[in-house]
Design a protein around this nucleic acid. Structure first.
Lengths: 221, 221
DNA sequence: TTGGCTAAGTGATTTAGTCAGTTTGTGAGT
DNA sequence: ACTCACAAACTGACTAAATCACTTAGCCAA
């Protein structure tokens, strides 16, 4: 079963991006240009580009052009066509986070650099601004993973938590004690600042366990 | 910025799959049929289908039809357009696994069921068959994550290790002491069988650390 | 300098078809 | 009655040539 033309084309386009040293945000040749260059037609080029769009490798901007996407160098990504949220899936997610995040927190406590502490502080304080603002930009738990110094851990947590965007309101509604959330985050930051891995791990586990209990005891949803 | 027609179309197609209760392997309506049903043209339908193909939600079979893919219900995915492997990326991957997998092993030791032990045994013994065989089907580390009982953890590890397919030979070449690999796997299985979480965690950490050292001390690549 | 207009470039989609595989049912031959 | 070859009929893969919608940059006038 030979790879289809548009399959080979996606690889060629990735080659153009990589060989050209293009970075996220840079423009790639227009669909017409690519069609001419590869001696094929635009619908076929568009099929290849749509595949790349699905994984965040490229982005379309109507009337402007096609650009290199932010996740082109990702190893893992959140499924853009994810299934609808259910109560079980939320608990499953928290269960997975309960396994992964304490270990990540421990690693971050050891490896954190000054700039990570800054961003963690910012994420903690931004969480208190009213919803709808730029609070989504800096998620505390994602920043905590970033502090580990391993981009792959960052990717994994970011992918896992991307799902949460759709249920964030729901969880907030259940675990609405935002002051408590803030205090727990603050305590984790302090442990990371002190490079106390054991404490960071314990606090993170307790924090997630609190969230889990809040969701579990929620009657609705 | 309203979502494009083909964007809405992907959602509609997913709706057909979900509302129709279609499962992986089932056929979905042909491109021409979908075009007629939504009163649009086939190139547009194909663009939408290509997006779904990129994330494994559907699969094309030339001349036969389009079918529901295996990863349609996944939350996280391995990037099908992943960047080329480098020495750094390999070490990064092992670093991430070193953080995540010991915690997963501990969880698996607690939650494992009899069928998980069976599959783990199978994965351990299959690892000794010559390469190129069905050894790829059952990866020990993926099965270990499956034993946690949390499908999301299984997904995360499977996504992380999917990358390894391309570098498996390379790592095998470096860490070629397959007998030692087998023994370490066997020891982890025993800890999981005994539901000894602490031991499972420790052995997994040591096992991955051995692999990391082997890769680190490799001069080439 | 500012504001609006215009023209070129780009993505989005259509229309109408051809080519290339797969599946299935039919019918001839045994 | 059974088998096998073969021919529709269906499917995906791709082409060709347009048109529409949107963005951007540049120009010109106020």
């Amino acid at each position: 079963m030979p790879p289809s033309l548009s399959d080979r084309l996606t690889e060629s386009i990735l080659g153009i991006i990589r060989d050209g040293g293009l970075r996220p945000g840079d423009a790639i040749p227009s669909a017409r240009e690519l069609a001419k260059r590869f001696a094929i037609t635009t619908p076929t080029v568009r099929e290849a580009l749509r595949k790349l769009e699905a994984t965040g490798a490229v982005e379309f901007r109507h009337g402007s052009g096609t650009y290199v996407g932010p996740t082109i160098n990702n190893v893992v990504l959140a499924n853009p066509h994810r299934p609808p949220i259910t109560r079980d899936s939320v608990l499953q997610l928290i269960g997975a986070r309960l396994v992964i995040e304490p270990a990540v927190a421990a690693q971050s406590a050891v490896a954190r650099r000054p700039e990570n502490l800054e961003r963690l502080e910012a994420a903690v304080t931004n969480a208190l601004v009213p919803p709808g603002g730029p609070a989504f930009a800096l998620n505390f738990h994602v920043e905590l993973a970033a502090a580990s110094g391993n981009p792959l851990l960052h990717e994994v947590l970011a992918s896992l938590l991307k799902v949460r965007v759709r249920e964030q309101q729901q969880i907030r509604a259940l675990y609405d004690n935002r002051e408590r959330d803030h205090q727990e985050h603050q305590a984790i930051v302090e442990a990371v600042r002190a490079q106390d891995a054991v404490q960071a791990e314990r606090l993170t586990r307790e924090h997630l366990d609190n969230i889990r209990q809040a969701v579990e005891s929620a009657p609705e949803f």
